[in-house]
Design a protein around this nucleic acid. Structure first.
Lengths: 122, 122
DNA sequence: ATACTGATTAGAGTAAACTCTAAGTCAAGG
DNA sequence: CCTTGACTTAGAGTTTACTCTAATCAGTAT
C-alpha cells in the first residue's frame, strides 16, 4: 500500500492532482485509521490507465464516466466496451491527423532547407 | 479578400476566435477604409496552417512565436526551421504514444469481449 | 423611416484541469 | 522537546483558449 506522496512520485503527478481526482470520483483510495489515503497496487494500475487515457486527450468527464461504470459492476460491461471502442476510434483518428501534419511539416522543412541552401550560394 | 465572417465560415471558427488571434498577434489582416478586417488568400493559408498546428496540441504561445519570427523576415529562417523541426519531433512522439495506447485499448477491448462471450454460456 | 445584417471595440465571463494556500494534525528523528 | 516533513480539509487562484456582452455604427431591404 502506497501513501499519496509515494504514488505521486511513482506516477509523476502532484499530490494535489491525486486529491483532485478523488474529488472528481476518478479514484477512491482506502484510508488508514488516522485518515491517510492508502493506494493499492490495483489503484496504481488504474491511475496508470487514467494517465494513458489523458495522453490521448480523453476529457476527465469521460474518464469519470468510465470509472463510475466500473463501480457499478458487471452489468455495465457492455457500456464500458462501447466507450472504449469509441475512444479507440478517436485515437486512430488522431494518429491519422498527426501523420498528415507530420507530412506537412516534412514538406515545409525541406522547403526551408532548400531556401537556405540557395542563399548560401550568395 | 474575405470579411471576418467569411473566413470564420470557411475555416469553421468563430469571429470571436479570429479577433482573439489578432489580439494575440497570430494574424494581422488588412483593413478597409471603414476599419473592417480584410483577409487575403495568403492570410487564409496561414490560418489553415495555424489550425493544423493546433490539432497537434501546439500551444498558442509557440504559434505566436513562429508568427513573430515570420514578421521579422528572412534572418529568422534558421530559427523557424529549428522550431518546425522541434515540433515535428513532438508530433512523431505523439504518434508513437497514441499507437501504444491504441494497442493497449485493443487488448482491453478483446479482454472485455472474451469476458462477455464466456458470460453468454450461462 | 425603420429594421435587419454584419461589422467594430474593450473588457467580462467561462470551462477544464489543475495548482496552491491556509490552517491545522500527527509521528519520527536529532 | 522541538523541528521537519507528510498528511488532512475546504476553498481560492491560475492558465489556456476561447466565448460572450454591450454599446455602437454603416449599409441594405421593405
Amino acid at each position: 500500500m502506497y501513501s499519496i506522496g509515494e504514488v505521486a512520485k511513482l506516477l509523476n503527478v502532484s499530490t494535489h492532482t491525486l486529491r483532485f481526482y478523488e474529488k472528481e470520483k476518478i479514484i477512491t483510495p482506502e484510508r488508514t485509521v488516522r485518515g491517510d489515503r492508502r493506494y493499492s497496487e490495483y489503484h496504481v494500475q488504474w491511475l496508470r490507465f487514467v494517465i494513458k487515457l489523458k495522453e490521448t486527450k480523453m476529457p476527465l468527464a469521460q474518464i469519470q464516466e468510465y470509472a463510475s461504470l466500473f463501480l457499478q459492476g458487471d452489468q455495465t460491461t457492455h457500456k464500458r466496451l462501447k466507450l472504449l471502442k469509441n475512444h479507440q476510434d478517436h485515437v486512430k483518428n488522431q494518429v491519422q491527423v498527426l501523420m498528415e501534419i507530420d507530412d506537412m511539416l516534412r514538406k515545409k522543412i525541406s522547403a526551408y532547407e532548400e531556401y537556405l541552401r540557395n542563399q548560401d550560394f550568395n
